[in-house]
């Protein structure tokens, strides 16, 4: 390797470290400091607030349901895209990437336009059937599923391409039916990609804010999620609660990162 000159190397090193410390590391560490400024008081106070507890529960439920939906959809879609050819496959794979690039606010607006019980395309009909989507939990789930949609697919598709389908065909020729082939051959070979996608989806689902804000109606104690609590409390000068809730969300995010970092080498080695 061509050696970079000593001075340039140190200059670049310092520049990068300073940039990352000022932009990410220092601000993040301050949130931790602010949370524990009075020891565990802020956290204890937060957990005794019924609205916050309700919001945390709602966030957890919504995240789990969304991850399950996206995992089933993602694995099915990946198998269809990789193992089959059909008309429009390429367009479909481009369309599946849209949710990542659309502004969360646009996602929220789109769902309201279709599922709002008063003015949406399908909303009034669904409301007649007794199913309220927007300003209710199903809407929050839909918004969360929407924004995290491509994450599982992006992990599973390259792995499926890499492992090929020779073993699947061997199993089929030996008499396994498609369900046996899937559970015994396909699923084990894409296991790490699925887990990786699930963890990424979970992190994204726990933290969704913009789309949920539009869709949920932000009804305190009912459809208010953890991220919405952070905003509301900060603006209402209840900063300890805002910081403590943010700390919980950030810890969950970092935990997901750590899991991914631990999985990554294993996943590429297998």
């Amino acid at each position: 390797m061509v050696k970079t000159p000593f001075i340039l190397r140190w200059f670049l090193r310092l520049l990068v470290v300073a940039y990352l410390v000022l932009l990410v590391a220092w601000p993040v560490s301050l949130v931790v400091r602010n949370t524990f400024a009075d020891g565990f008081d802020a956290l204890a106070h937060t957990f005794s607030d019924p609205y916050v507890v309700h919001a945390l529960k709602l966030t957890a439920i919504v995240a789990v349901v969304s991850v399950v939906i996206n995992t089933v959809f993602g694995v099915t879609m990946s198998l269809l895209l990789v193992r089959n050819t059909f008309r429009g496959r390429r367009i479909l794979s481009v369309l599946l990437d849209i949710p990542m690039s659309v502004s969360p606010v646009v996602v929220g607006l789109a769902l309201v336009l279709v599922y709002s019980p008063t003015q949406g395309w399908f909303g009034p009909t669904l409301a007649n059937w007794g199913l309220q989507v927007v300003f209710s939990t199903p809407g929050i789930v839909m918004a969360t599923v929407f924004v995290a949609l491509p994450l599982v697919i992006r992990e599973v598709v390259p792995t499926l391409q890499e492992v090929g389908d020779e073993q699947e065909w061997a199993a089929r020729s030996l008499g396994a039916n498609s369900f046996q082939t899937f559970t015994r051959i396909t699923l084990p070979s894409i296991r790490w990609a699925v887990i990786y996608g699930v963890v990424l989806s979970l992190a994204r689902s726990l933290g969704e804010y913009g789309a949920v804000k539009v869709v949920s109606g932000n009804i305190v104690g009912k459809t208010q999620t953890a991220t919405l609590i952070v905003e509301e409390r900060y603006q209402n000068f209840d900063q300890p609660t805002a910081y403590a809730t943010a700390f919980l969300l950030a810890s969950a995010a970092v935990a997901c990162l750590v899991v991914v970092a631990l999985l990554r080498p294993k996943h590429t080695a297998s």
Binding site: V24, T227, A253
Partner: peptide, 16 residues
């Protein structure tokens, strides 16, 4: 550290 902005909820990023 590079991955933190990916994982952090956006509202928390603002607070941070």
């Amino acid at each position: 550290i590079i991955d933190i902005p990916f994982a952090l909820p956006t509202i928390v990023a603002g607070l941070v």
